[in-house]
C-alpha cells in the first residue's frame, strides 16, 4: 500500500469507481452504535469532549455584529457557574462577520470559521467564490467552510467539483478547508461516499455533512458513510482528514452516539477538535444541562443556561 506523507504524489482515482454503500447495512451498523451504553465517567468525559468540539454557529441573514459578539463571548464562557469547562472549538459565521468574530475571540484559542463560496447554495461563478473565500481569510478566518456545487455533482461533472475545491483550497492559505457536501441534496449514500472521496482528494482538510439549511442534515448514516471514507483515505494515503457533522445534532445523546461512532470507526486519534467537530447552535446548552444534571442530580430549567 502506498503510504505518502504529502499530497503532491496523490494518485487521483476514478471517482466513478468509488465504493458502493449498502444502506440497509449502514442502518444496522448505526443502530449498533446507538446501543452503546455511555455512563458515569465515560459520559462526563464524552460530554466535555463534545463541548470542546462544537463550532458554535450563527448563519442567518439577520446576523448583526452585536449578535456575533455575544455568541463569541458565550463560546469562551459556556457556563461560568461551573468552573473547568472547556471552550467550544470555533465560532462559525458568514464572511461579513469574520472581522467582528476574530476580534471577539482573539487570544482565547477559539477559532473563527467562515462559510464561503456563496453559501449555502454555491450557485455563483468560481471568481465570486474565490473572492468570497479570499475576503474571509483576509478578515482573519482560521477555517473556511465551503459548499460543493451539488448541481454539477449530480449531473456527473466530478472534475468540475474537484477543480473547484482545489481552487478554493489554493486561496485558503493557512486556513483549514472544510468541504460541505450538503448530503441532504445528494440523497444516496453512494453519492455521499463519492463526494467525500472527491473532496478529500481535491484538498479538503475536513469534510462536512451539511449547511444546516436543508433537511435531512447530519444523520448518523451519512456521518458514518463519511467516516468510512476518511478511514479508507487514511489507509490509502496516510493523510488524516477531519469530520464535521452539522445540522440536526441538538442533544447530548446524539452527540455521544456520534463520538462512539468516531471512536469505533476511526479510533481515538480522531477524538479531538483538531479532527472532529459538531456544527451546531443548540447542542451546547443541552450538553451543559446534562453536565449540570450529572453534577447536581437534578435537571435545571433551561433559563439557567444562556442563549447567545
Amino acid at each position: 500500500m502506498n503510504k505518502m506523507k504529502g499530497r503532491n504524489n496523490l494518485v487521483i482515482p476514478d471517482f466513478n469507481q468509488s465504493p458502493c454503500i449498502d444502506k440497509v447495512g449502514v442502518e444496522e451498523r448505526v443502530a449498533r452504535f446507538q446501543t452503546r451504553s455511555i455512563k458515569t465517567e465515560a459520559k462526563m468525559q464524552g460530554l466535555k469532549m463534545a463541548l470542546n468540539m462544537i463550532d458554535l454557529t450563527t448563519l442567518e441573514g439577520k446576523d448583526t455584529p452585536g449578535k456575533v459578539k455575544q455568541m463569541c463571548y458565550k463560546a469562551q464562557h459556556l457556563h461560568d457557574v461551573h468552573p473547568g469547562l472547556p471552550t467550544v472549538a470555533a465560532v462559525c459565521v458568514y464572511p461579513s462577520m469574520v472581522g467582528v468574530a476574530a476580534k471577539a475571540v482573539s487570544g482565547s484559542g477559539v477559532k473563527v470559521a467562515s462559510v464561503s463560496t456563496a453559501f449555502p447554495s454555491g450557485q455563483a461563478p468560481l471568481a465570486v467564490k474565490l473572492a468570497d473565500t479570499k475576503f474571509a481569510v483576509a478578515e482573519g478566518a482560521d477555517e473556511i467552510d465551503m459548499v460543493i456545487s451539488r448541481g454539477k455533482f449530480l449531473s456527473g461533472e466530478y472534475n468540475f467539483v474537484f477543480d473547484e475545491i482545489a481552487a478554493i483550497k489554493e486561496v485558503c492559505g493557512e486556513a483549514r478547508l472544510k468541504v460541505i457536501l450538503e448530503t441532504g441534496e445528494l440523497v444516496t449514500l453512494d453519492n455521499v461516499r463519492r463526494a467525500s472521496d472527491i473532496a478529500m482528494y481535491a484538498g479538503a482538510d475536513f469534510i462536512k455533512t451539511s449547511t444546516g439549511k436543508i433537511s435531512p442534515a447530519a444523520t448518523m448514516q451519512v456521518t458514518y458513510t463519511m467516516l468510512e471514507a476518511i478511514r479508507d483515505f487514511k489507509l490509502k494515503t496516510g493523510i488524516k482528514i477531519g469530520m464535521k457533522p452539522a445540522g440536526g445534532i441538538s442533544n447530548s445523546k446524539l452527540a455521544l452516539h456520534n463520538l462512539v461512532m468516531v471512536k469505533e470507526t476511526l479510533g481515538e486519534e480522531w477524538l479531538t477538535n483538531e479532527w472532529f467537530r459538531f456544527g451546531a447552535s443548540s447542542l451546547a446548552n443541552d450538553v451543559l444541562m446534562q453536565i449540570m444534571k450529572a453534577e447536581t442530580g437534578v435537571y435545571q430549567s433551561a433559563d439557567y443556561f444562556s442563549k447567545d
Binding site: 469532549m49 470542546n52 469562551q76 473547568g84 472547556p86 471552550t87 482565547s108 484559542g109 479531538t272 483538531e274
Partner: peptide, 8 residues
C-alpha cells in the same frame, strides 16, 4: 479558560 485538547 480554554482547555484545548490537541494532538500534541
Amino acid at each position: 479558560m480554554a482547555k484545548k485538547q490537541t494532538k500534541k
